[in-house]
Design a binder for these strands. Structure first.
Lengths: 226, 226
DNA sequence: CGGGAGCGCTAAGAATGCGTCAAGATCGGT
DNA sequence: ACCGATCTTGACGCATTCTTAGCGCTCCCG
């Protein structure tokens, strides 16, 4: 289920969007201002964000910058301002699209689909299954098997493994992992990673004390070696 | 340099876009109709496509579909039609953005930048690897191999090597290295560099006392010679 | 010829980061 | 409200990495 975060200070628009999106099968999260938008985004990790400019507390570009600091979630900006300077500012700050009010609901939905499609096709580019020795990681199905047997992972364990598997072979920094899975405020809680990597190794590695796939790069991060 | 394919049957618009894009440093390819657009796209692999709807030969949605069959290159649609049905059709066919004429050039440029940025940040292909004799430095994966064998580097060692490799062939001053890796307060601690360069040579060079890649420029700094 | 500056090299203690275990705290479902 | 699963937090031993010091070398220049 695709999860959309809608940010708007006008309760009426918020309600209209919520109803329309929910009717199309989206799960809708809402926030009435920039501060709470950043908070919800960090906490719930929506798949796409619809952001109204002209929020009461923060400047729109600052909200975008705040999100882009740690997340690549697509952002579609809504605005009553038709001024091209605003569009340029928002897009250069990292927005993916810019729609001016009044907007057609079907156009917004089409742009939403386009944004989600881009994000998912790029992420899953190629095969949705990563093989590594006796492990098969099904990214689409969110399931891991070891020697053909399904291994049960908790949501956090899966989040870490998924992120590492999507970048398999590459080093993923601790900050990256923490920001993606716990949120940007947890960037320094490297302790969490040690605990969870140990759990993952115990569940997935043949010899947990001599890992072959979940490799630690001291001081830098972790690497999934297929 | 980013390469843009502009598709439009109106020579005047084509010319205006070409001039504006070229002035911003883009390399511009052009095509006057759908058939040739598909041909040029297949042959030259542009980084982004600006596509006018209402081409003389093919329906716009068909051009998009034709491109999407094999390519994920970002497509920005231009159109005089403000009808939301057209927008939905184009976006659902696989377009990334939809701009209605008349459009502001700076807005189009901003949307172009946004499309290119998305495509490149998500890009898995085209990994930047610097080769130097028996050394392969994978900048994205943060990994070095020597004769195909992975060499383990500490964070500081990697930081120095990365900085030198990113400027390969050019001289990097000691102050630059110290400021980038230890912070601006350490600008005079040239001693650190001597210690770490020695370690790097021991790990990477065939003959550490006669370095071929990690070259000292006395009194100035260091240079990575591929 | 002598002295100083800059560099290469080694080695030791200090500091940091990692793995591990285990005990609370929290969450979600019944 | 209870119970199991999951997430947070703390403490400890151990290994790696960073920092710092010392010494010999070469080069340059007076």
């Amino acid at each position: 289920m695709t999860r959309v975060l809608v940010v708007d200070d006008d309760p009426q628009i918020l309600r209209a969007l919520k109803i329309n999106l929910a009717a199309r099968g989206y799960t809708v999260l809402t926030a009435p201002d920039g501060t709470r938008a950043l908070h919800v985004a960090a906490h719930d990790h929506p798949d796409v964000i619809v952001l109204d400019l002209g929020l009461p507390d923060l400047d729109g570009a600052d909200v975008i910058t705040g999100l882009r600091g740690w997340s690549t979630t697509p952002i579609i900006v809504l605005s009553a301002r038709t001024d091209s300077g605003d569009k340029v500012e928002a897009l250069d700050a990292g927005a993916d699209d810019y729609v001016t009010k009044p907007f057609g609901m079907d156009e917004l939905l089409a742009r939403l689909r386009a944004a989600v499609r881009r994000a998912t096709t790029h992420a899953v580019a190629g095969e949705p299954v990563v093989h590594a020795g006796a492990l098969d990681i099904d990214l689409a199905g969110k399931q891991v098997t070891r020697d053909g047997v399904v291994v049960h992972l908790t949501p956090t364990e899966w989040g870490i493994l998924e992120l590492l598997a999507r970048h398999h072979g590459r080093l993923v920094t601790q900050r990256q992992l923490l920001a993606e899975i716990w949120g940007p405020h947890y960037r320094n809680e490297t302790h969490y990673l040690r605990v969870y990597l140990a759990q993952l190794r115990r569940k997935l590695e043949p010899d947990a004390s001599h890992p072959r796939h979940l490799i630690t790069e001291p001081g830098m991060g972790y690497r999934f070696q297929p």
